[in-house]
Design a protein around this nucleic acid. Structure first.
Lengths: 206, 206
DNA sequence: ACGATAATGAAACGAACGTTCAATAAGCGC
DNA sequence: GCGCTTATTGAACGTTCGTTTCATTATCGT
């Protein structure tokens, strides 16, 4: 009952995070136990509490890291772009598909386990998500403003496009007929089509 | 310790199903307990086992009923429609939005709790879902065949549209600025736009 | 009226859960 | 190589879980 040779706090924490992502995504946060997680990383359950005070703190850590990294990654991509909303939407779609396809476990957790969070933790993660949604929404608003896009309800369009893009994770599997970049291309076209000008608007026509 | 006055098997089972939908949707299947559920319907936990052999059988019952009812409802709607794929897609979108907005708990469960099912149960529910997806997919294939729609990958388009439509449940709340029929109209337009002919196809152009 | 059976309650089972804590070994600056 | 910090263990706590057993009562067909 003692410290392991060669042990290092940050490395161990990273290993546990990786295993927890996998375990929580596969079984669900509530159904997964700290004992299972400990076994996956060859530790005793009590050792986990050296890193996170509670099971929920571990979940929050995972979600917070994912959302922060997502926003950070987009911020880095966005600086390379012009102000053209069409270009920005295309870049956003491709970025979203690429980023989410590469991190299925994080995405699954972020969309499924929010209800398991205590109110204050929920609020923190939800704020990140709203921030990300507003990135797309602002692109659509600007596109509609200059007449390059048709989005009578930008918020609804943004939610619809994000749901459409995120849905790729429910069916795409590596090694299938379509490559990840095929899929990226297809979704970028569909997202653009959703707000393409020229389609009828029955609401206005009525 | 006896039978309650006025008790009737089918009525009680229906009450329990309703409460279970609510409870499972709010807390998640794994996090919800049979004791909580029993308390909600003013029964003792053991009485629940008169209706379902296990907790999982109850979940399967809920999911099976939802999927069966969904397919049945579409079948009844579909007989009223012509063979025009454009009309059928519009009807499908509106049907999907209306049906899903009216049953948020069922939808949430169906999309979130599949992983908690044992393999054989998972297979049964998943078969229903694939059937429903193929309804939309067949519409898109026919639309592409007669040149009324642009869907180079009908399966991908179908998955994208379904994800887009289903996403409405993540943000829509009764009593907001937009009515359910406003939302139905918006989503029907966006779904149509996804496969509208005339948009560029960079894959072919390259 | 009565026997069969559907429906329920009371109590308990073993197992698993999240978490705590004192003890102890390894790493590290000096 | 001493001493402080960090990482880990083993054992246990109280709670809750899904489920079972069995006695008991209400209802229904006859």
């Amino acid at each position: 009952m003692a410290r392991k040779p060669g042990s290092n706090g940050e490395e161990t924490a990273a290993l546990v995070r990786e295993a927890a992502l996998e375990l929580f995504a596969q079984q669900g946060y509530a159904a997964a136990s700290m004992r299972q997680l400990a076994k996956l990383v060859d530790m005793r359950p009590s050792a986990l509490y050296h890193y996170w005070p509670t099971k929920q703190d571990l979940l929050v850590d995972l979600l917070e890291r994912h959302m922060t990294a997502l926003l950070q990654a987009w911020a880095e991509r966005a600086v390379e772009l012009s102000n053209d909303p069409i270009e920005r939407l295309d870049a956003f779609s491709r970025f979203h598909i690429r980023y989410h396809l590469a991190r299925p476990n994080e995405v699954f957790l972020s969309y499924m386990e929010l209800r398991n969070l205590e109110p204050q933790n929920f609020a923190r993660i939800e704020a990140h998500r709203r921030h990300y949604e507003s990135v797309l929404k602002d692109i659509l608003i600007e596109g509609a403003r200059i007449g390059a896009m048709q989005a009578p309800e930008p918020h609804v369009s943004a939610m619809a496009i994000i749901a459409m893009l995120t849905g790729v994770n429910t069916w795409y599997r590596d090694g299938g007929r379509l490559s990840a970049s095929d899929v990226e291309q297809l979704y970028a076209e569909m997202a653009a089509a959703v707000v393409r000008v020229g389609r009828q608007n029955k609401t206005e026509a009525a």
